[in-house]
Amino acid sequence: MATPLKRVRGLGAAHHGTETFWRQRLTAVANVPLVIFLIWFVVRNAGASYNDVKACLASPVVAVLMLALIWSGAIHMRIGLREIIEDYLHNKLCKTASLMLATFFAALVGIASTLAIVKISFGG
């Protein structure tokens, strides 16, 4: 075979191959039912009292689905935000800083939401 090995492996310039592309699709598929669940949950709890919403969130099924949504959503959001930044920001410093911020933001909302769900689940 005359083809250079790096091309055969198909890992591209960033050496990550189609990993990001695939992860975006994987989380997209997961997000469809999870987003429908979120809409159902919010509509169901529209105008509900504090204790009712808290009790509903403390139910294991709701908590698991909510955690799945938060994690899948945060990963999907990080990929999407980075894609936009990579396409439109060309100043090296500005681009790098924005890419970092996108990850920090996804991590922040992900960690904060996770802690909230866990705290509510354990009755806090």
């Binding site: 504090y50 909510m66 904060a112 909230a116 769900i117 509510i120």
Partner: peptide, 9 residues
Amino acid sequence: LTWWLVAIS
């Protein structure tokens, strides 16, 4: 959504 969840917690 995060604000809402954190507030409940």
